[in-house]
Each structure stands twice: as C-alpha cells, then as structure tokens.
Design a protein around this nucleic acid. Structure first.
Lengths: 224, 224
DNA sequence: AGAATGCTTCGATGAGGAACGAACTATGCG
DNA sequence: CGCATAGTTCGTTCCTCATCGAAGCATTCT
C-alpha cells in the first residue's frame, strides 16, 4: 500500500467518458456553459451538472458565474498538460488508427491547446523566436529577450505582464513531442492569429486552419 | 460527442486505486511480479491478475516471462511521463497536504523515475552537464557532446548506443517542473549511483537517499 | 513422479456510481 | 408580476466492475 498524491482520484475523474469529453472540449481554451458541455458529452443536463461538480471538487475546473450563465474552464496549464499527456498515450497505444484522417492531419499542423497555439506551426514558431533571440530559453523557463517588447509591440502585442501568470511558458506538444509557447504571450499570439483572420477554428475541433494568405502573413511575422 | 484518442479508456485504467498503486510502484523502474504488485496494491492475487491483464490490454505494461515468474513493467517513457503528469496534478490540487512529510522532502531531492534519477539533484546534474557542454540540448532533444564519450568512459559508463532507444532524453520533473536526464545514459547513471553505493533506495518508495560521502562523490563527478 | 510455487481463470457477490425525470432555485425579459 | 431560460438537487433505476475463494495450468525443485 502506497501513500502520496492520490493519482487514482484524479485519473478516475478523467476516466469517465462523459467527463473526458468535457475536458477535451475545454482543451479548446474557451470556457463553456453547463449546457454546452452536456451537449459535448452527449448526456442530459442533470448528468452533466453532476459531473461538473465532481470535476470542480477535484480541482480540475474553475468556475466563472456571469448572470445566469456559469462558465466552466480548465483550472490551469498543469491540468491542460496532464490531458495532453494522457492524449499522447491514448493516441500511441490507441485503437490502431488505421490511417490518420484529414482532421488528424490538420490537428498535427496547428491546433488550440488550452489558450494558445500548438502543433508543428507552433513548435516552429517557438524555435524561430528563440533562434532570433527574441525569446530566451532555459529549459522550461522561457523569458523575454531584449528585443521582445519592441518586436511584439510592432505587431500590436503588449508583453507587459502584470498578472501573476507568466508571459512565457513551455508546453509539451503531444503530436510533435517538442515544446511550443504557452503563457499570456502564447495566448496573445493565438488571439492575434484568429482576430486577424489568418486562420479559423475548425468547428467542434481543436484544429486551426490557416488560409493561404494568412499562412504567409503568419510566417512573415513569426518565422521570418 | 467527440472522437479522437480514447483518453477515458486510458485514464480509467489509472483511475482504479489498485491499478494506480501498481503503476506507481512500477515507476520505481524495476519490473515486478504479479505477487509483488498484489502486495503493493493491497489486493488478492486473483484481483491483481485481473488488473494486470487489463493494463496489458490497455498497452500500459510490458510483460517479460522468465520461467514461472512473469515480470510486469511500464510500457515506456511516454507512459511514465503520463503518470508523472497525473501525479503533478494530484499533488497540487491534492488533499491540501498540511506539511510535506520527511519522505516527501526526500522524494523532492532525489527519486527514481522509471529507470533513471529524478528530483532536484537530477535536474541540477542535467543543467551542469549541458553547461559543461558534455551534453548538447535542443529543446527535448538531448545529444551527446564531443567530450561525452571520453568523459563518461572515465567513470566507467559506455555511451555507445546500439539499441533503438536514445541515449539521452529529457523527462519532465513533477516536483521541480524542470527537465532531468532520461534515456539509456540516464539509466546508466542511476545504476552507477546505486552500484557505487553513493545512495540507497528507500524501501517501498521511489526516494533515493544519498550518504554524505556518496553525495560528495556524486557532486564531484557530475556537478564538478 | 510428486510436491511446491507462481499465476490465471471461473463464478458468485456486492458496492459504487452513472444515468435520467421530476421538482426546485436563480436570473433575465417583457 | 408571470413566463422563459439556465442550472442544481433529489430519488430511483440499473449496470458495470472490483473483489475474493476455489479450482485449474504451468514451471521448477527434489
């Protein structure tokens, strides 16, 4: 008999199909209401509510009440990282995927991870930002380089971080198995990409699809 | 309703207390027999056997039969990484640990992770090896530096890697949240530490306790 | 061969928990 | 105020699955 962190308690929370669907949906980064999550999970509202209170009690979710809406979101990057880790194992030992479908391919290229961009594009971007010394990397710590403030200001991103949450953070990519950029800066970049309409979210999926011109713009700004 | 990797299936495997205990025990790195795992999990042999076949079917374990013994081990580093990720979440949202006990403190300093050393000591070691350019780091890729072969040969470690498994690999530490060294080289170093009796395994725990002289020897060789 | 050990399979039992409908609370709208 | 929408709580039903004892294989020891 062992003691220590109760990993079974956490894992069993993720281990229910309905809850797993909810968490996967929340990996999209936007907080969702109980009704939306019930739909995602394919269960009735009461059932979803029960699951959500369990996830809350388990500390995996945060709750923001706005009027009669209650928005549930992932509790933090660590939880998102855990989900990615489980997803990675499930994908590799998983049901012998006959051949990765088109959606999977798109997911590999670019997708949303919690609140920032993941996938090959995101990994390439971080590599390039570090190579250009705009960001300075030290293991999982990523700091802003000398030129970061001016560089990002030029494209309309303010890197002042007043919040406790770090501006930069490394996040492990389950498809590429290399790091991409998380943190408030990662979130700001994703916001930029979507608001500039360089790319759009695939409906009901984490995939991010770049338009031809959007891809050029993105590469010019971040991979140039 | 979502598709994609069946994360609930994997998580629910870890979500049973008995199975979670088994997996945690296997994080110690050595493969264990069904009887030993039954003891660890605190269940009867038939129950353990049933759990083990489920874990096998789920692809989380590997099996090596030797005579009438059947040794179960974790299926690979990816599975180990997932367990660490879950452990990290469980520890942080966990039952408000009043104060970390002595064993927890020891675990933070040095412990076994699958087959290599983890904890503050291991993180410091990797940092130092990279700083001395004995290893070359590029994100999660870690390669041998020019001087690696001679350096490790001097302390009796052969870094020839004929096996498919890479000599070096970064592994994320749940307590320190920075990387430490995994791969065959990481395993060889742990073996060195234990065989030289610089440190001993804490019974029924992943903790690794250095002796005063052993700590000096370790620091001289790897942190010098 | 016979006995002992290691482990798995079978069958029965029981508990936990996922599900939903109905009733209840809370917020917003006219 | 009354109605609609959003969500939770309650109680019941049902089913999965963890558990163990007993019996069955397999391997090694003597």
């Amino acid at each position: 008999m062992r003691e220590g962190p109760d990993i079974a308690r956490i894992a069993s929370l993720v281990g229910d199909p309905a809850r797993a669907n909810m968490l996967t949906a929340l990996m999209g980064g936007t907080a969702l209401t109980a009704t939306e999550l019930a739909l995602e999970a394919g269960v009735s509202l009461p059932t979803a509510s029960s699951h959500l209170s369990k996830l809350m009690e388990g500390g995996l979710l945060t709750l923001a009440s706005q009027g009669r809406h209650r928005y549930y979101g992932l509790a933090g990057p660590q939880v998102a990282g855990m989900i990615e880790a489980i997803t990675g194992v499930a994908a590799s030992v998983g049901p012998q995927r006959v051949r990765p479908g088109p959606r999977d391919a798109a997911m590999r290229v670019a997708r949303v991870c919690y609140d920032h961009l993941a996938g090959e594009q995101a990994v390439a971007m971080l590599d390039r930002l570090v190579a250009r010394k705009i960001l300075v990397r030290d293991d999982n710590e990523i700091r802003l380089g000398q030129s970061a403030a001016s560089h990002f200001a030029a494209i309309g991103i303010n890197v002042e971080h007043k919040a406790r949450r770090p501006a930069c953070r490394a996040c492990l990519d389950w498809s590429v198995r290399r790091s991409h950029l998380a943190g408030t800066l990662g979130a700001a970049i994703l916001y930029k990409i979507l608001s500039e309409k360089w790319a759009r979210r695939e409906k009901d999926s984490r995939a991010v699809i770049f338009s031809p011109t959007g891809k050029q713009a993105f590469e010019k700004v971040f991979l140039g």
